[in-house]
Amino acid sequence: MKRIRLPLTQSAIKKLKVGDEVLLRGALYTARDAAHKRLVEIAKKGKRLPIPLKDETIYYVGPTPAMPGRPIGSCGPTTSSRMDLFTIPLLDRGLSGMIGKGRRSKEVISAIKKHNGVYFVAVGGAAAFLAKKVKKATCVAFCELGPEAIYLLEVEDFPVIVAIDSKGRNIYEKIGTKKGGRKKAR
């Protein structure tokens, strides 16, 4: 198990290999479908983005509202592929890390390689478990979007697995593919 501090550094990213289990500590941003759409619209117009992207990590999540006295509600990852359309412009602007669940497009994998980025996966559906790893949550942009707003999260020992590393190696390549289990199933 590796321990990594956020924001990520270029050298820390280079050391991460596909399949590595990592505990994250530090600050990251949340964003899902609606926030991605808005960020990319703002970027296309050449305007200033409401959050810095350089070396930052975005977690694809729409949490449940927090109970009184807690920082956040349940907060497991959402499907990353829905963000694929918007990911490359964000990587172009310095984004380094992403956390979600599931596969990414070929284009996103190439862009991760090109920009020395990393894509982590968190355990889909382990939302109450992951809530315990978040120490603080502050809405920083698009707050009117509710669960789809951008929050700055402080996390501690947040468990993730490297799914695509900076060399473009992809954890899903060999899992459950037609080359693998499918033929046996027939």
């Binding site: 999540v61 949490p63 449940t64 349940s74 959402t78 355990v123 939302a127 109450a128 468990p159």
Partner: peptide, 24 residues
């Protein structure tokens, strides 16, 4: 280990009244 996380998740959810999944 991952299934262990899911079992732990269901325990936390019931005990602390946190939704099992954020997608309710």
């Amino acid at each position: 280990n991952l299934l262990g996380v899911l079992i732990e998740n269901s325990r936390i959810a019931a005990k602390e009244r946190l939704a099992i999944c954020q997608d309710t």
